[in-house]
Write a protein that binds this DNA or RNA. Structure first.
Length: 493
RNA sequence: CGGGGUGUAGCGUAGCCCGGUAUCGCGCCACAUUUGGGAUGUGGAGGUCGUAGGUUCGAAUCCUGCCACCCCGACCA
């Protein structure tokens, strides 16, 4: 295996693919489009899950689990929902295998055909709303605030590790409310939860916005989203939160008795983030040396590498390392002491850089003598010597981790600012998109036709209508028709 | 699903045009010397050449089908 990673500037997508594999995050599986998430990659996902789960619970949600299989007929109950997902559903038609005539292989037993085929969930709105029908009778049963952590399958044509896989892991929240306003508030709240998570934990700045009709979730009235910008100037939808109106309530006949004695359909939301966040995390911060992980999501925040000759020296360093580990752990810092004798220090340095460990402590005989350590920062690749008799190491490291967390966020934010361009003419639009990429802030006449044409001509789509956009009269960058504000265009993942 | 490309050891590859049982590097195993930025030497293990068939005395090499993967389109979180 060669040493260097491909360069981002030379082949960004090759760099990404190689990085995912070499950093031990994930690999392809025997089944096309599926992936094996390796322990290191999964431990990052677990950190994400833990934090998100906490945030969901703090906003009043409870976890539940709904089945993987959905009766085929359910999917067709909400018209636009079927249309959106029908083309990418895996279908179970049989429930038994048997040995072939020659006994050499197993074949589907034709006698075991299901009366009604089962869909492997591409998302769970249908099965959940069919269940909610039984759970909801009165306004007293509302709001119903449920989340589930699950896998879903969408049979995609072209897949990429984490960014788009046929099977992926996610969470999907499904809520039911008595009033429209309450449901809208819920959808907005969850978008804000996602945004806070992305910014504070992943250190990825995001634009909060609303999807245009073309980009909206199949079955939703409004789709709120968070959009992030990757280092190659392409946008990535990192999370969506949908206001479903009464669409699913009507499709599955979910009504409730109001306080006043009436009978009304409930209002719904659904919202999700997936293992795609891993892709966002990787592409937002990492460099040509490997991953750069934000301390808040790094499986190990600090690694200690001993430098020694012989067992005696290792024993001395180990003793010191254990002291340091105890101190760091007392501050809640996760630390790993790599005392493997099978690899040399230089090899380990490269390895932990590839894996994005935020801080590395190296300790050798010189350090023992001087009561120092060498501290290396992954994000800046800078090194310093820290004198242990001069500082309180656990506080020093704690602060340093926070500094790294902030620093990579700030770096990503200034990149996004630099890569967001306001344009006012079609010529400029095309020019910027080709030469620079990134987000293009431009006026749009609000029609799907214009959006389609722009997509056809440039491959750029409307990523969102930013929540905080300013009202500004202008003319659509493509059609010249009147517009009331700017939207963000970009080429997207 | 359309167009293009590629399948040779765990990974990356040479050989294919011009047929004679496979090259090199990384990795792996053993031993020794090494250890402050991916160590070095010596020895060793590992291959139904994607798969099925055809041509031939003989196929990694030529022909046909199939499968998988990659890139570009259509679709999508």
């Amino acid at each position: 295996m060669s040493k260097g990673l491909p360069k981002r500037s030379e082949d960004y997508s090759l760099w990404y693919n190689e990085l995912v594999k070499r950093a031990d995050l994930a690999e392809n599986s025997p089944v096309r489009g599926c992936m094996v998430i390796k322990p290191y990659g999964f431990s990052i996902w677990e950190k994400m899950q833990a934090q998100l789960d906490k945030m969901f619970k703090e906003t009043g949600h409870q976890n539940a689990y709904f089945p993987l299989f959905i009766p085929k007929s359910y999917l067709s109950k909400e018209a636009s929902h079927v249309e959106g997902f029908a083309k990418e559903c895996a279908v179970v038609t049989h429930y038994r295998l048997k040995n072939s005539e020659d006994g050499k292989e197993v074949v589907i037993d034709p006698d075991a055909k299901l009366e009604e085929e089962l869909i492997i969930r591409p998302t769970s709105e249908t099965v959940i709303w069919s269940t909610y029908k039984n759970w909801i009778q009165s306004y007293r049963d509302l709001p119903l605030l449920v989340n589930q952590w699950a896998n879903v399958v969408r049979w995609e044509m072209r897949t990429r590790l984490f960014l788009r896989t046929a099977e992926f892991l996610w969470q999907e929240g499904h809520t039911a409310h008595a009033t429209k306003q309450e449901a809208v508030d819920e959808a907005v709240q969850m978008m804000e939860v996602y945004a806070a998570f992305a910014e504070q934990y992943m250190a990825v700045p995001v634009v909060r916005g609303i999807k245009s009709e073309n980009e909206r979730f199949a079955g939703a009235e409004d789709t709120y989203c968070i959009e992030a910008l990757m280092q190659d100037g392409k946008a990535l939808q990192a999370g969506t939160s949908h206001f479903l109106g009464q669409n699913f309530a009507k499709a599955f006949d979910v009504k409730f008795a109001t306080k006043e004695g009436g009978l009304e359909y409930v209002w719904g939301t659904s919202w999700g983030v997936s293992t795609r966040l891993m892709g966002a995390l990787i592409m937002a911060h990492s460099d040509d040396n490997g991953l750069v992980l934000p301390p808040k999501l790094a499986p190990n925040q600090v690694v200690i590498v001993p430098i020694y000759r012989g067992d005696e020296e290792l024993a001395k360093i180990s003793e010191k390392a254990k002291e340091i580990m105890t101190k760091l752990r007392s501050k809640g810092i996760t630390v790993h002491f790599d005392n493997r004798d099978t690899h040399k220090p230089g090899w380990k340095f490269a390895e932990y850089e590839l894996k994005g460990v935020p801080l590395r402590i190296a300790m050798g005989p010189r350090d023992l003598e001087n009561n120092t350590i060498e501290l290396a920062r992954r994000d800046t690749l800078s090194k310093e010597t820290v004198n242990l008799s001069e500082v309180n190491l656990e506080d020093y490291i704690f602060d340093k981790l926070e500094e790294i967390q902030n620093s990579i966020y700030t770096k990503a934010l200034s990149f996004r600012k630099e890569m967001t361009t306001e344009v006012n003419s079609w010529e400029e639009f095309k020019e910027i998109l080709e030469s620079k990429g990134g987000f293009i802030s431009a006026h749009w006449d609000g029609t799907g036709e214009t959006e389609d044409k722009i997509k056809e001509l440039t491959k750029a789509t409307i990523r969102c209508i930013p929540i905080d956009r300013e009202d500004e009269d202008g003319q659509c960058v493509f059609s010249g028709k009147p517009s009331k504000g700017r939207v963000l265009f970009a080429k997207a993942y």
